[in-house]
Simulated assay, not measured.
Amino acid sequence: MAGIARSRLTQERKNWRKDHPYSFVAKPETRDDGSSDILVWQCIIPGKKGGIWEGGFYPVVLKFSEEYPEKPPQANFPQHFFHPNVYPSGKICLSILNEEKGWRPSLSVKQILQGIQDLLDNPNNGDPAQEKAYHLLLNSKAQYELTVKKEGLLPKDSWYTT
């Protein structure tokens, strides 16, 4: 299986370089010795135009196992990322990342990242992972959106390097 995961991810990287959504970044992590770790990808997801996360750029780490694509990657925002479907650890709670719910081995890195981007503006109240953000959204959408603007947005220049 190890060869399958690495081959698939190598192909995913080639496909990404040819065709990826504007302002998204996804690339294997660079180790201290300069080599690439194809099983760990450093990604950036922009907030959708017209959405409450617009203007921000959000770091996501995708960790693939040797069992990929049979098993989904784990996806994480930074710890304490403010969103109803993100655990305090940063782990993203999304059906397409859950092998018992919506994961399909045919899903690409591009589709995964676009799914995460969509989740930002369309939280799933039926599957909360973070109490504060969940209750705020449930009780006052306006206050939730103000909190996102205040706490959730990460300006591009605060962490993004080209």
Rank of each mutant, 00 (worst) to 15 (best):
W159Q: 03
K27Y: 12
K149P: 06
Q111V: 04
V61H: 14
T10E: 08
P78F: 04
T162V: 09
S36Y: 11
E145V: 10
S108T: 14
S106C: 15
P59C: 01
K27M: 12
E100D: 01
D19Q: 08
L39T: 07
K141T: 05
L107Q: 13
A26M: 13
Y68F: 14
T147N: 07
I45S: 06
E145C: 10
E100N: 05
S89E: 04
G51C: 13
K48G: 13
D157N: 13
R13D: 11
I52R: 09
K91F: 04
Q42R: 12
L146V: 15
H83I: 12
N124Q: 00
E145D: 13
L113T: 06
E151I: 08
T10K: 14
G47R: 04
E29L: 13
T161P: 11
L136T: 08
H83P: 14
P78D: 02
Y68T: 03
P73L: 09
N139F: 11
D32T: 08
K91W: 01
L94F: 01
D121Q: 10
L94H: 04
Q42Y: 06
G50W: 02
S65I: 04
L153F: 05
G90I: 02
K101S: 07
K156C: 08
N85I: 09
K91M: 05
V60M: 02
W41E: 00
W53T: 05
Q114K: 11
D19V: 01
Y160T: 10
K18M: 06
C93E: 08
L120A: 01
P84V: 00
Q11P: 04
P88G: 05
S140M: 00
R8I: 01
D19F: 03
V148C: 05
D19N: 14
I116N: 05
D33H: 03
L137W: 14
G47E: 08
L113Y: 07
F57H: 06
L154R: 07
Y22E: 15
P128T: 03
P28F: 08
K18I: 05
P69W: 01
A75S: 07
D127I: 06
L120I: 00
K156S: 10
C93Q: 09
R104M: 15
S65K: 05
S106M: 14
I112A: 01
S89N: 09
L94S: 04
D37L: 08
Q79H: 12
P84K: 00
